[in-house]
Design a protein around this nucleic acid. Structure first.
Lengths: 309, 309
DNA sequence: TAAAAATACTCCATAGGTATTTTAT
DNA sequence: ATAAAATACCTATGGAGTATTTTTA
């Protein structure tokens, strides 16, 4: 492999067309430069300069190499800068996953702002449910993910920062009796058939919903399970039942569905003796492996921390 | 400047994630490789690998550098190949000038064929009159040129190879008496006012035309001078006079102009006692400095020599 | 305890230096 | 006569080797 040193020396001679001056520019003396060029010509098997004892001119093969050598050296010089930019997170790659609910409002604006500040960062985005994200994190296939969970979520080995908290609201078919009139009370809602995601998708949130029913001495009647938020809402629209969804799902605007906040308010005496539980909030966090070494991720976490949210 | 050696070693470790195996692949032992990576990290000011005494893994900064380093090495490896291709004329640059008459039929097909065989050659083409071309050649601004001349042309210091020979034909306004009927004889033509290029443009051809008149004891009556072949034909069309042009000019298809071959045939006795001269041929040659060192030109000359034409 | 990286040193290849010669202008 | 490249020879930096130590799985 011909080292950069020789190409640098070649360029100096090609630009000066004068060995002594080129040597001076390279902070060396003329004789070793002469030898270096001779060595390069020998390694290439190509004459680079036509030189009499008095004058130097470049051959056409040499002339072809000048811009190429310049380019090579420029790239070589750029690498240390890139290395430093990568080390402090200004350059690199960030693989993020996200649940659909952040994908619509929050994420796009974050991505846009982060990109502006980090032009050398390649962002890779995937939509995935929370359980899949935890799997991807474990395999190291993503750097971080935005997932939904209920308050108090603390996955082992992962760090997280909360980016949103919103109430769970009830999605109802628009023809449903509770869709109109005063805000429905929890007691009335608990008897309704339920559309909900399978427990494995977001266990903490699933459990929170179920304990809401349990604390009222009831067992939820699951009419249908579905994974996608959109599917859940569609099933509600089709009359399968009601569903607890994060408030931001309102943005879907699916016709035939009404969203209502549910008060814990004591309505009649549905649960004898027990205090009615609060409807839990639904939180969204950015989650990543505690042991991450990706400086871009560290920047992103700091960025998210500073963002209003 | 960080030498390629260090990047090669870095890549080997990055690919093996194992110093001993990487060292083996590099045909060296492990300790100096450890030192080399340490040196690279030191020069960059960036940790490239997280290593316990038992395992090695790349940092994200290191990961960013891998494709860059690969690219750098690939480019460095390509340079010697390019150098050799340039030395034998498979790569490089060829600056050609040409007169308009070759620019329409011959040159395009040559350029196309030559390009197919020499994909790494950059061809630069300029149209210019012969005198300008000789000037460009003298300054080294072009490598070779296609010029018109009369037989026997031998410019000092230049080599040439003839690529075409064609008769001079007479361009006449279509309303001219000689435009119809039997082929005009030379004697009838010599009295006509003449449109011709200035002598400096193609002295040899200009002189050949003039000696045609002199040998018949006449002085040409120059009605108008013009440089461009197209202009000359336009002037003929406008009735300024007749003009001697290479036969290939027929391709211009300027309306109002008729082209006729002129026989030397003895018509009457216009030139008492003298044998009527032949209308000279007009030749086209590729011309280049004898001392050229451009291997691409040498290939082009060989190529032109082989081409039918 | 075994595998692998780090450390300590040794050596020599070669990049670069000095002195001198050659040659074209 | 001189400027500049080539040649001859010398020096020393540092890249690579060998031997050994350290560490942790």
């Amino acid at each position: 492999m011909i080292e950069l040193r020789l190409w640098r020396q070649f360029l100096a001679v090609a630009e000066e067309l004068h060995f002594s001056r080129a040597a001076q520019r390279l902070n060396m003396t003329q004789p070793p430069l002469t030898q270096a060029i001779a060595q390069l010509e020998d390694l290439l098997g190509v004459k680079l300069f036509d030189r009499t004892r008095r004058s130097v001119q470049i051959t056409s093969a040499g002339a072809v190499l000048v811009p190429e050598a310049r380019d090579l050296l420029a790239r070589a010089r750029a690498l240390p800068l890139l290395a430093r930019a990568s080390a402090n997170g200004q350059a690199g790659r960030l693989r993020l996953a996200f649940v659909s609910t952040v994908g619509f409002a929050l994420l796009p604006q974050w991505v846009r702002a982060f990109r502006l500040q980090h032009t050398q960062v390649v962002l890779e985005l995937v939509e995935a449910t929370g359980d899949v994200q935890l799997d991807l994190l474990a395999r190291g296939d993503i750097d971080a993910g935005f997932i939904l969970h209920s308050p108090g979520f603390a996955p082992p080995g992962l760090a997280r920062v909360q980016v949103a908290s919103e109430p769970l609201v009830l999605a109802l078919p628009e023809s449903h009796v509770l869709a109109a009139g005063r805000a429905p009370t929890l007691a009335r809602v608990l008897a309704e058939p339920l559309v909900i995601f399978p427990r494995r998708i977001v266990p903490s949130l699933h459990d929170a919903v179920f304990s809401l029913y349990h604390s009222a001495g009831r067992l939820p009647q699951v009419a249908q399970e579905a994974i996608q938020m959109q599917t859940i809402v569609n099933l509600v629209s089709a009359g399968f039942g009601v569903a607890w969804v994060p408030e931001s799902v309102r943005q879907y605007q699916r016709s035939g569905v009404v969203y209502r906040r549910v008060s814990a308010g004591r309505s009649g005496r549905a649960s004898a003796g027990r205090a009615p539980a609060e409807v839990p909030d639904c939180e969204t966090s950015l989650v990543w492996p505690e042991a991450t070494r990706n400086p871009v991720l560290q920047r992103f976490v700091a960025f998210i921390g500073e963002s209003p949210g």
